[in-house]
């Protein structure tokens, strides 16, 4: 039972790549959304490098101030999926120990240095209204009143 579920997961996982240039990254495997999309949107694996995801997956019990710990089998399957779907570009490399994808060189260039008042850059849905479907295309962006991307 477990083994079938896992291999089904791996199969779907292999097809979870973004169409190049479209900025639509979903749909993601159901297990990934279930485990990594319950407290925030399931972030696109393609926006962080494999070493970055590894750092995230190694400290799930101390996850940005919350306990996001997972049972070993699930954690390994998801870590594999993230590693295989990760970016290989330097601009998506983590720049600090907590490996936030909102702190990569790419993210900073695209978003500027300062988030809106009382909103964290990690809260993608605050501006990308379809982020829960992995859709970051320009037409679904709606910026909070008064915020403009600074340079």
């Amino acid at each position: 039972m477990k083994a079938t579920l896992l291999s089904a997961f791996l199969l779907i996982a292999a097809t979870g790549n973004a169409l190049a240039g479209s900025h639509v990254y979903g749909p993601f495997p159901a297990d990934y959304v279930e485990e990594c999309g319950s407290c925030h949107v399931a972030f696109p694996p393609q926006l962080l490098t494999a070493p970055g995801w590894q750092r995230v997956m190694e400290q799930l019990d101390k996850h940005y101030g919350a306990d996001a710990s997972l049972e070993d089998k699930r954690r390994t399957a998801i870590a594999d999926f993230l590693r295989r779907s990760a970016s290989t570009r330097d601009k998506h490399a983590p720049t600090e120990a907590s490996a936030r994808l909102s702190r990569t060189a790419w993210f900073a260039r695209e978003h500027g240095p300062t988030p809106p008042a009382k909103v964290s850059f990690a809260e993608c849905t605050a501006c990308h209204t379809a982020a829960d479907r992995g859709d970051y295309s320009e037409r679904s962006i709606k910026l909070p009143a008064g915020w403009r991307r600074a340079r």
């Binding site: 319950s38 925030h40 101030g65 919350a66 990690a122 809260e123 849905t125």
Partner: peptide, 10 residues
């Protein structure tokens, strides 16, 4: 009632 995550607002 529905709630919101204290950190992420989800």
């Amino acid at each position: 009632m529905p709630g919101n995550h204290a950190v992420t607002n989800k």
